[in-house]
């Protein structure tokens, strides 16, 4: 029951997906399975949130290093959950003013909207913006044209960084009429359309084969790693 039944579920669900691709008669079954999948994906998001809650609760109760920040996380979590689930600040549908919970859960001006607009957006965006600084630092310290391969990588980056900004037009625009393909923007287009396409395609084909192989292993019951350890 603990190991065999999940194997059967995985195999049946997988084969239904494969067979339904070739047999349109199975469309209804396939769509049902996809609907189930989508709902389970949403439940998984709830599960994910709940486990973050559990993790930080434990951290606070054990008074582990930095537990004060876990209190901040917990407060942020609980307040957002409350205002989101109870639609705080959300007006009802104009057609049904008597039913308080009918409005858009993230209506402009509501508490959930506020927490997205003024907490999630600025902090997430700024965290990723930090990478601009680190990529500059890495460019200075790590990119060395030591051999042919490194030179190719750097040379390409050079051409594209110039060709994908106004610098390309500025530097090579004067002969764009005669030799459009040899300007920096022209070279950039050529690199992207030819070398990048070829390289990415090779990678893509390799990954596709890899994914097909792992998928087959799951369907055939060879790969059972998702069941966890034996004594689990």
């Amino acid at each position: 029951m603990k190991r065999t039944f999940p194997l059967i579920i995985a195999a049946v669900a997988g084969y239904v997906m494969v067979v339904a691709y070739f047999m349109p008669a199975l469309q209804q079954v396939r769509e049902d399975a996809e609907e189930w999948f989508n709902i389970l994906a949403a439940i998984a998001m709830i599960l994910g949130g709940a486990s973050i809650l559990g993790m930080h609760l434990r951290k606070v109760s054990d008074r582990r290093a930095g537990w004060g920040f876990s209190v901040v996380t917990l407060l942020g979590f609980l307040v957002t959950l409350y205002v989101g689930l109870f639609k705080v600040g959300v007006p009802p549908m104009p057609e049904y003013p008597d039913r308080a919970w009918t409005g858009e859960y993230i209506a402009q001006g509501s508490a959930l909207w506020w927490s997205f607009e003024y907490i999630i957006y600025p902090i997430t965006a700024t965290m990723f913006a930090l990478l601009a600084f680190y990529v500059a630092s890495a460019a200075f310290r790590a990119f060395r044209a030591k051999n042919l391969e490194a030179m190719l990588l750097l040379g390409t980056a050079f051409v594209i960084l110039l060709g994908r900004s106004y610098a390309g037009t500025l530097l090579t625009g004067w002969y764009a009429e005669e030799y459009p393909n040899l300007t920096l923007p022209g070279l950039t287009d050529m690199i992207m359309g030819v070398f990048n396409t070829a390289g990415q395609r090779a990678v893509m084909i390799g990954i596709a084969l890899g994914i097909a192989a792992t998928s087959l292993k799951i369907l055939l019951g060879i790969d059972r790693s998702y069941l966890g350890s034996r004594n689990g």
Binding site: I39, F69, T73, G76, L81, G84, I120
Partner: peptide, 20 residues
């Protein structure tokens, strides 16, 4: 710490109101 908590709850709320 703040954004971790708020984002986790935000995803839960979205999943609840749009799917569940």
């Amino acid at each position: 710490a703040l954004v971790v908590g708020v984002s986790a709850a935000y995803s839960m709320v979205v999943a609840y109101w749009t799917m569940v």
